[in-house]
Design a protein around this nucleic acid. Structure first.
Lengths: 394, 394
DNA sequence: GACTTTCGTTTGAGACTCGTACTTAATAGT
DNA sequence: ACTATTAAGTACGAGTCTCAAACGAAAGTC
């Protein structure tokens, strides 16, 4: 259990104590919504006086703002305090094979801007930087402060959240990307795995806001998963957790792009579906999936193929559920247009495999965030230092 | 993301701050071993003076003790401080189908006592209580303090660590067990899943002390896994994480005790092995496995069967590794006597399935703790409140 | 209009950490 | 043998923070 020095939380000084208590107040406001100071004191367990001091400090730096007093009943009415979207922004970027995306969130959790641009060459860093620069110009200029930026990439990122170890799809490695984006944004930047970002987005903004234990499964050509356990992302020893595309599931004879047979994504990846239904690939995975869904309405062969895919999805989810025990599973990527065509058979297969007593089936849902999920999750992650207490808002 | 109130760490007051810093010192002593006050200050980042105060407090309650000054080089020699095993004890119990076990650890991490008793009726609570009472008498009486107790059970335990939701093998539910054991031990008691306890034991005392990301796989008739991620146990939404025995892996025609076909434990569980090799089941799983291992030395059919089992183990581990990305996988239970007979083919199968670039294979190791792994892990868990700072010693 | 209830702030006390200065105890050098 | 040097541990004063209780403010209730 050799950990890097003594991490595990280091408040130490009284100043650290204040930072921590401040972050507790901030998290309470984010999770449970606006509240009066008295209400916050009850929620956090802090003394009324302490909450007063903390809120005053947060208000001074523009992190929270008071709204109008609301009369609740007897007694002096309280003045609710809410996270303010005026000043602090978090920026998320996604660098993917066929597109780049950006999203900007404010501290109140509102999406202030989001955009996607198709790119021709895979891993087009120039396009990403241009998009980042544009977004930055777009949202700043009236006193807004960019807290930090996060780039979501389809690949393996080291634990320092800076170094890309392996990202064959975009052909990048090292920490050059971080440096480039930092230069453009002028604030600290980190890099994270795209599926993890999307999972985080669904857990905080999307289809799984009501649970601490969510599994996000996304698919286009490849299949990836993001795991949220106890509200936090699970990374694994080297950041490889959730790389489920090459698990041996489904048709054991199906040839995968990795050269082996029987990989899950060879059964449920987009190319596998297209091969089964005999339809062509369109511009984007989403367009392709939409056309497949449309075809299924009148072509029984297509519907049947999707049924098979759904069963293989359910089979894999049974496996993942046995291991991870999530309360909610969110399907994203090209599964969204297919909707119930895949979800239905997946549920059936999952139920058949999960019949062990008392093991309840996790809820299967579709992503509500669409293609910008990863960018939104990245933006959300940009606030992680604020809410964890690691960063003191100036 | 509705969490139960605002948990996530609540030091709040200055007293909480001291508790937290105290726990940082304690963890440093546990993880990195004894050190002088100056060394501790460097390791923890606390001021020298603060460490002095904290150590004085810990020494006053008998949690740490000084050893002889060691001359290191120039300058005044320091007096190393180490966790003291004199005073505080943690007790772990295991209630299983065919045996009950107990282990007592002191704060220094030494196993002060461990014992196993076979039982006739499955889930023999009386035997467990008798063993607990005996162990308590055995280790206390000279000023020792039982910090808390932990019971490992083969089943599903609710997040309150008290209520058993589902444990068909021992036929218990509710929080009656906790109350009984608390009465006998006279200290707070919690209940945890046995595989989780064993995993925790291996991560802290056994074969995986060198990593924060370990997967523990144990098997007798059933197969279970414990997941340690970032040094902490992963529980899942309802405590079901790691229930991997019924994942569809291996021989898809094999009939499982649960009534379905294709479950992993129908391929690699003890009964499956016995059926393949045609050998009888002996008194205990370990004795049985030992006799199978002996038979494999001269019976090629047995060796071949074990090879098949090993491959199915490797196949499942490939799946788990893809999801969890552990640095170390520890095999326990009946796999220990079989040793390389299973480990070898498992490694091969795992390698074949993990060939994706840059994904390194986790190290496969055998449990070093034997049948008392779960009890030892339970005892270790009994100290969790001390090391987390939740409990202030005396 | 007096009373009650609740919100938020003020105030003084208490607890803790930190940096500096000081004491102690060893080695290194002459 | 004696001094200089190095490092460990302690004492002390300053600073920061939280907390409980008291207090003032703003509403409803009788």
């Amino acid at each position: 259990m050799t950990t890097t020095a003594d991490r595990a939380g280091s408040p130490s000084s009284t100043e650290g104590l204040r930072r921590r208590n401040t972050s507790i107040v901030l998290r309470s406001l984010r999770q449970l919504g606006p509240a009066t100071r008295a209400e916050l004191a009850k929620r956090t367990g802090l003394a009324k006086a302490t909450v007063g001091v903390i809120v005053a400090g947060l208000e001074a730096v523009g992190a929270v703002s008071e709204s109008e007093s609301v009369v609740t009943g007897r007694g002096r009415p309280g003045t609710p305090v809410a996270l303010s979207g005026e000043r602090y922004l978090g920026l998320g970027l996604e660098l993917n094979v066929d597109y780049v995306a950006v999203a900007v969130l404010d501290l109140a959790g509102e999406v202030r801007l989001s955009a996607t641009r198709p790119v021709d060459s895979s891993g087009d860093v120039e396009a990403l930087l241009a998009l980042a620069a544009w977004a930055r110009r777009e949202v700043t200029g009236h006193g807004e402060v960019l807290v930090s930026g996060t780039v979501a990439v389809p690949g393996l990122v080291r634990g320092d959240n800076r170094t890309i170890d392996w990202a064959p799809n975009i052909g990048l490695s090292g920490d050059g990307l971080v440096a480039d984006v930092e230069r453009v944004l002028g604030c600290p930047v980190r890099v994270l795995n795209d599926a993890n970002c999307a999972a985080y987005a669904e857990a905080h903004h999307g289809a799984a806001t009501d649970t601490d234990h969510a599994l996000y499964l996304t698919g286009t050509v490849g299949i990836g998963a993001g795991i949220v356990d106890g509200g936090e992302l699970m990374r694994g020893a080297v950041g490889f957790a959730g790389e489920v595309g090459h698990m041996p599931i489904g048709d054991s004879t199906a040839l995968c792009g990795c050269g082996r047979r029987g990989c899950w994504e060879a059964s449920i990846g987009l190319h596998a579906v297209l091969a089964k239904v005999g339809l062509p690939e369109l511009d984007t995975p989403l367009a392709t999936a939409t056309s497949v869904a449309a075809a299924a309405a009148f072509d029984a062969r297509v519907a049947g193929a999707l049924d098979t895919v759904g069963r293989d999805v359910g089979l894999g989810l049974a496996m993942l559920t046995s291991v991870l025990d999530p309360a909610v599973v969110v399907l994203g990527g090209y599964f969204v247009p297919l909707g119930e065509l895949v979800l239905g058979p997946a549920r059936e297969a999952l139920d058949a495999r999960l019949a062990s007593p008392s093991q309840h089936r996790p809820e299967l849902r579709l992503s509500t965030l669409g293609i910008e999920a990863a960018a939104i999750g990245a933006a959300e992650q940009s606030f992680s230092d604020v809410f964890s207490g690691a960063l003191d808002l100036a």
